[in-house]
C-alpha cells in the first residue's frame, strides 16, 4: 500500500486488473472508481457513465460473474477479480446470443442502457437458461431504460434464452 504524506493530493496507485481475460498493470489515481479506470485508463467505453451514483445500472459490469455497479465501486475492489465488460461478452466475429436477439427484436433504441442490461441479462442466463418473465424483470430491476418501455428487452432475453437452450441462432427462432 502506497502512503500519502499530504492527504488531499493525487495519489497514483499501481493496480493489476484482469479485464475481459487480459491482465493489465496500471497506474490509477487511488480515488478512481472501477468505471473511471475502465473508461479513462483502459479506454473501454462500453460501460456507460449515466447517473454515476448507483441509480441507473448503465455502468453494470460483471465482477467474478456478478452484476456490479462500476460507478460506485472503488477500483481497488476489483483487484484479484475477473472483470467482464460488454467488450468481453463475446468475440468480435461471434456475437453473444443476447446481442443478436437485441438486434432482432429492437431491444436497443438509443443504446445508452444496453451494455448494462446485456451484462445483467448475461449473468441471469449463465445461471438460468429458462427464466420466467418475472425472473427476467427481477434481474433487470436495477437497469433503467428511458426508450424501449422494456417489453422488447424482455422479448430479446427470452429469445436469447431459447436460442441458448436449443443451441441455435436467435435468427433461426425469430418468428418461428
Amino acid at each position: 500500500m502506497a502512503s500519502l504524506d499530504r492527504p488531499g493530493e493525487l495519489l497514483i496507485e499501481a493496480i493489476r486488473l484482469t479485464v475481459n481475460g487480459d491482465t493489465h498493470d496500471l497506474g490509477v489515481p487511488s480515488h478512481y472508481t472501477l468505471l473511471e479506470a475502465l473508461r479513462y485508463v483502459l479506454g473501454l467505453t462500453g460501460p456507460k457513465q449515466g447517473c454515476d451514483k448507483g441509480d441507473c445500472g448503465a455502468c453494470t459490469v460483471l465482477l467474478d460473474g456478478v452484476p456490479t455497479l462500476s460507478c460506485i465501486l472503488p477500483v481497488q475492489e476489483a483487484i484479484g477479480k475477473e472483470v467482464t465488460t460488454i467488450e468481453g461478452l463475446a468475440a468480435p466475429d461471434a456475437p453473444h446470443a443476447l446481442q443478436d436477439a437485441f438486434d432482432l427484436t429492437g431491444g436497443a433504441q438509443c443504446g445508452f442502457c444496453t451494455s448494462g442490461i446485456l451484462m445483467s441479462a448475461a449473468a441471469l442466463l449463465a445461471a438460468n437458461r429458462s427464466p420466467t418473465r418475472l425472473e427476467i424483470r427481477e434481474a433487470l430491476a436495477g437497469n433503467l431504460c428511458r426508450c424501449t418501455g422494456y417489453t422488447k428487452i424482455y422479448e430479446a432475453i427470452e429469445l436469447a434464452a431459447a436460442a441458448l437452450r436449443e443451441e441455435r441462432m436467435p435468427a433461426e427462432l425469430k418468428g418461428s
Binding site: 500500500m1 502506497a2 502512503s3 500519502l4 492527504p7 488531499g8 493530493e9 493525487l10 495519489l11 496507485e13 489515481p29 487511488s30 480515488h31 478512481y32 472508481t33 454515476d52 451514483k53 472503488p74 481497488q76 483487484i79
Partner: peptide
C-alpha cells in the same frame, strides 16, 4: 461525479 483523493486501505 468525482471523488476526492484518499488512501484506500485493504
Amino acid at each position: 461525479l468525482r471523488l476526492h483523493p484518499y488512501v484506500y486501505h485493504r
